[in-house]
Write a protein that binds this DNA or RNA. Structure first.
Length: 247
DNA sequence: TCATTAAATTGTT
DNA sequence: AACAATTTAATGA
């Protein structure tokens, strides 16, 4: 039974989570990885504070400069994080797929957000108030471990993203972006379908859909991936990272 | 269950 | 950007 949230419309640039929020369904809560790491009492406290909201394509989940109120996570869908250096020129994009949580860095220091988060497709976004976030940090070792992992991944992605921007070979850009995306998946089994359209991938990489299409066909020819309707399968993740495409 | 239609996505120029 | 081809989803008999 699909949830009935069709009547509400939003303008782009809106912050949806504060307005269109609700309790998470059991199915949605099941997709939050760190909930399973908590003790019963910790989990009940977290659940009491946890909120989820729907984000339509184009919606901003958070923007630069907004004060921290929530620690965000993706339950379903796909978000795009554009890290915005104040000087403007250096912009790096990163995709966030289900199971990924972000904003730890700014939530820890209680600073304003440093990036824009935008929904690429209809997504379900969860948010945990910063106070609860800090409470969990103080009480759960497993939670600390999870956050540390997220920080580490984010850092690796940021560095990788910086390099991707400097590459001039589109095939390479697509390959590396795919590898990074697939890495953030919860438990990425090889051969699992990565549900992303070529249009969405194009937005993420910053290329035209046509060029992405060609890049994907090349990657398929090399046996790295298999193209399917509405997504693709990663067959050789290591190859996506290491492929050099000497031309 | 099957056929028809619409919508979404991919492939090509 | 535009168009054709293909796949999926929705609808009704």
């Amino acid at each position: 039974m699909p949830n009935s949230s069709s009547s509400v419309k939003t303008l782009p640039g809106f912050v949806p989570l504060h307005q269109r929020q609700r309790q998470g369904t059991p199915q949605e809560l099941d997709g939050i990885p760190w909930l399973h790491l908590l003790s019963a009492s910790e989990r009940s406290r977290a659940l009491a504070e946890l909120r989820v909201g729907d984000a339509l394509p184009g919606d901003y989940v958070c923007r630069v400069g907004k004060p921290i109120t929530l620690w965000f996570g993706v339950v379903s869908g796909l978000l795009k994080m554009s890290s915005d250096d104040t000087r403007g020129v250096t912009m790096t994009f990163t995709g966030i797929s289900p199971g990924g949580w972000f904003g730890e860095g700014t939530a820890l220091k209680r600073e304003p957000y440093r990036y824009n988060i935008q929904a690429l497709r209809k997504s379900v976004v969860a948010g945990l108030p910063v106070d609860t976030f800090h409470w969990l940090l103080d009480h759960s070792l497993a939670f600390n471990r999870f956050v540390m992992n997220q920080l580490n991944e984010r850092l690796a992605q940021f560095i990788a993203g910086h390099e991707i921007d400097r590459m001039n070979n589109p095939d390479l850009q697509v390959a590396r972006t795919l590898a990074a995306l697939f890495n953030t998946r919860l438990y990425p089994g090889v051969g699992e379908l990565l549900a992303i359209t070529q249009q969405e991938l194009a937005y993420l990489v910053g290329l035209s859909r046509q060029r992405v299409n060609l890049a994907l066909q090349e990657l398929q020819r090399r046996g790295c991936i298999r193209i399917e309707y509405g997504g693709l399968r990663v067959l050789q993740l290591a190859q996506l990272r290491s492929e050099t495409f000497n031309t």
